[in-house]
Computed example of a mutant assay.
Amino acid sequence: MDLAQPSRVGPLLRKWRQRRRLSQLDLANRADTSARHLSYMENGRARPSRAMLLRLSAALDVPLRERNTLLLAADYAPAYRESSLDDSYMASIRSALETMLTAHEPYPAVVVDRLWNVLLGNRAMGILMDGIPPHLLEPQPNVFRLALHPDGLAGRLANLGEVRELFLERLSRQVNATGDAELQALHEEVSRYPALDDVHDNSSRHQPSPIQVPLRIRTPFGELAMFSTMATFGAPADVTLSELAIELFYPLDDFTANALRVMPLDGG
Rank of each mutant, 00 (worst) to 15 (best):
M90P: 01
G121W: 15
R8M: 11
D253F: 06
A237S: 13
S209H: 10
P194A: 04
L136Y: 02
P251A: 04
D61V: 06
R164F: 08
S209P: 01
A46K: 10
D238F: 04
S203A: 14
Q212K: 15
N176L: 12
Q5F: 08
A31G: 03
Q24G: 14
N122V: 03
V111S: 03
I217S: 00
T229W: 01
W16M: 02
D253A: 07
R114P: 00
L244S: 03
Y80S: 02
P141H: 11
L252Y: 06
G234F: 15
A245S: 15
L252H: 09
E189K: 08
V163M: 12
I217P: 01
A181D: 00
N176A: 15
F255G: 06
R36A: 11
Y40A: 09
M129E: 14
D254H: 11
R20H: 02
P11M: 04
I217A: 00
M226N: 02
S7D: 06
E243H: 06
T232V: 14
E98M: 11
E223N: 06
L85H: 07
L60E: 05
E162T: 09
S228K: 12
V262W: 07
R114E: 00
N117T: 11
R156L: 10
R8E: 15
A73Q: 04
S228Q: 10
G268Y: 10
P63H: 00
S209I: 04
L72W: 00
R173G: 04
R55T: 13
V118A: 02
P108K: 12
R47Q: 14
F255K: 12
A35G: 14
L248E: 00
V118M: 04
S92T: 13
M52H: 02
L38W: 06
T33N: 07
R216Y: 04
K15W: 13
E162Y: 09
L260Q: 03
P194I: 05
G121A: 15
H37A: 07
P220H: 05
P150I: 09
M125T: 10
